[in-house]
């Protein structure tokens, strides 16, 4: 076991504000931080213990990005983090810039954005955090793997990551359910995903219609007040209605 490392505030601030001048560095084969911060102390050891090795599966094609497999690895190893710890940019920036450089390079190759206006925005989103606090956690290259696990992990199931599989089966499901305000309530998203999985409900337009419906009822009804079994009934009724209508 080893200690979880994180960037110093000053290191993170410097890196974050120099994304554009560092374009070339983000296309390199190896992490550039040792050279970049040469001669200075740029990271710290936390008191948080993690396994010595946290090896992710490296995507080899765009059709199989291995998000589910890597969510299993990251969340299983770091389940003991609190949400507060897991929302710390300094921690994930160490992962994205140092320990999991190869994964980040293969998952979000920087080359395709070099020289383009979007470069800073994309790097910001994947290697750091975007300013939208809640959505940021689901967009950052490594943090998202932990947060997907956190909001779907269910020990009561024979495969605790079964609902994670439903969430990550289609990008639309993850974006429309996890990134919506109702997706922050773990009971709500688990109830929703369990029905989505049972009904094999992944078609893009219908997923969006369902998310819109849940947002609408959330305007007058506090979903958090509804017990999981009733939530399941509510979602099942709507999914069946949308399926019939299609």
């Amino acid at each position: 076991m080893s200690k979880l490392k994180f960037l110093k505030h000053s290191s993170l601030d410097r890196l974050r504000s120099n994304i554009a001048p560092n374009q070339k560095r983000y296309t390199g084969d190896a992490s550039f931080l040792n050279d970049y911060f040469a001669g200075t102390s740029w990271y710290l050891d936390s008191n948080i213990v993690i396994p010595d090795s946290l090896e992710l599966q490296i995507p080899t094609s765009k059709s199989d990005l291995l998000d589910l497999e890597n969510t299993r690895i990251v969340y299983s190893a770091l389940k003991h983090l609190t949400p507060l710890q897991a929302s710390q940019q300094r921690l994930w920036a160490y992962f994205t810039h140092v320990s999991h450089w190869e994964y980040m390079r293969k998952r979000w190759p920087a080359e395709q954005y070099v020289g383009k206006e979007r470069f800073r925005e994309v790097m910001h989103e994947r290697y750091f955090f975007i300013s939208d606090g809640s959505r940021a956690l689901l967009r950052k290259g490594m943090a998202r793997l932990w947060w997907y696990g956190y909001c779907t992990y269910d020990e009561a199931r024979s495969d605790p990551f079964e609902l994670t599989g439903a969430l990550l089966k289609k990008l639309d499901v993850a974006q429309n359910f996890a990134e919506n305000p109702f997706g922050r309530n773990i009971d709500v998203i688990k109830a929703l995903l369990s029905v989505v999985m049972e009904r094999d409900f992944y078609e893009r337009k219908r997923v969006r219609d369902l998310a819109r419906y849940i947002n609408q009822i959330g305007g007058a009804t506090i979903l958090d007040a509804i017990p999981p079994d009733e939530l399941r009934e509510l979602f099942t009724a709507k999914i069946d209605q949308l399926t019939v209508a299609a």
Binding site: P83, L84, S87, G133, S134, L137, W147, C151, P181, R184, N185, I222, D224, A225
Partner: peptide, 17 residues
């Protein structure tokens, strides 16, 4: 009576009643 609590930075959302 109910209190709804949300925290953006940690994705926390819960209801106390």
């Amino acid at each position: 009576y109910a209190v709804h609590v949300e925290c953006n930075s940690t994705r926390y959302r819960n209801l106390f009643k």
